[in-house]
């Protein structure tokens, strides 16, 4: 095989099946609709919750997660070095033109060592950081400080506990951390164990330290919140229609004839 053929073979080996990426994104969308959040136990165990978060923390601080959960520019690789090229987050977390994430991060992982990873969202490049208005940065944080940034809707992308669980368990970019392509280390827990620790932390009141009150409600998932908003809108629309019908059925008003 000459160098050009070898190059072609390597390059041809770059990509896996896009169909698989599209299917996984579609499966994630279906899973989002049917996702049932874990509820808080009637007798939550704070120590068990704190132990569960200690396990989650090991994953959250792993380069597969923390490389994009940073103040501004992303990091890169197993030792979280400065990203090449010097990409910036941008408003939507997808880079700043003309250097967007999707210039290099395609719809799927490359099979080649050191090539940029990728994943597809509805068949399009889906690689991104958190957006500028919600950076979800926990670089440099550990323990309770990290836990509170992770749990607080003001710093976690406006997520309730139910929405955090949904994001951790079914989001395809989170799941990418366990399918990162060649040469990238895996988080210290496997995905099933990670999911289990997420549930355990929430079941036990989502504690971050030894003193604050435990959480009593997990709130709504994004799908539930959307359904509730739609129901409220439908109720409001029905009331408006009923009002108009009542108005139409009422006897016509007549003006008094002036004498």
């Amino acid at each position: 095989m000459n160098p050009q053929q070898s190059g072609r073979a390597r390059a041809r080996a770059v990509v896996l099946s896009t169909a698989a990426a599209i299917c996984s994104a579609a499966a994630a969308a279906g899973a989002a609709d049917s996702f049932v959040p874990t509820r808080i136990a009637t007798k939550p165990d704070r120590d068990a919750g704190l132990q569960a978060f200690a396990q989650l923390e090991r994953v959250l601080l792993h380069p597969r997660c923390v490389n994009c959960h940073v103040p501004d520019a992303p990091l890169q690789g197993n030792n979280s070095r400065v990203h090449y090229p010097p990409i910036q987050r941008g408003v939507d977390g997808r880079g700043t033109a003309p250097l967007q994430c999707s210039v290099c991060h395609s719809t799927q992982n490359s099979s080649l060592l050191h090539a940029p990873p990728g994943l597809g969202t509805d068949g399009k490049p889906g690689w991104h950081m958190p957006p500028a208005n919600m950076k979800m940065s926990w670089l440099g944080l550990t323990g309770p400080a990290l836990c509170k940034v992770f749990r607080d809707p003001k710093s976690n992308g406006d997520r309730s506990l139910a929405a955090i669980e949904q994001h951790m368990i079914i989001d395809h970019l989170v799941a990418w951390g366990w399918n990162p392509g060649p040469g990238r280390t895996l988080p210290p827990l496997d995905k099933a164990a990670f999911d289990e620790q997420v549930r355990r932390w929430i079941q036990n009141g989502a504690p971050c330290d030894s003193s604050e009150p435990l959480r009593k409600s997990v709130g709504t998932t994004r799908a539930e919140a959307k359904r509730e908003a739609q129901q409220q809108q439908a109720t409001s629309d029905r009331a408006l229609v009923d009002g108009l019908r009542a108005l139409a059925a009422a006897p016509p008003r007549t003006h008094a004839t002036p004498r």
Binding site: A11, T18, V103, S106, T107, P116
Partner: peptide, 30 residues
């Protein structure tokens, strides 16, 4: 041109809908 084959050198840059793209790591389906 084919340079590094792993989207690092930029020799393979083309534009897709006006945005630059590293063609060596982008599947044609994309």
């Amino acid at each position: 041109k084919y340079g590094c084959g792993i989207a690092v050198c930029g020799a393979c840059t083309v534009h897709a809908n006006g945005q630059q793209l590293r063609s060596c790591v982008t599947p044609v389906s994309a």
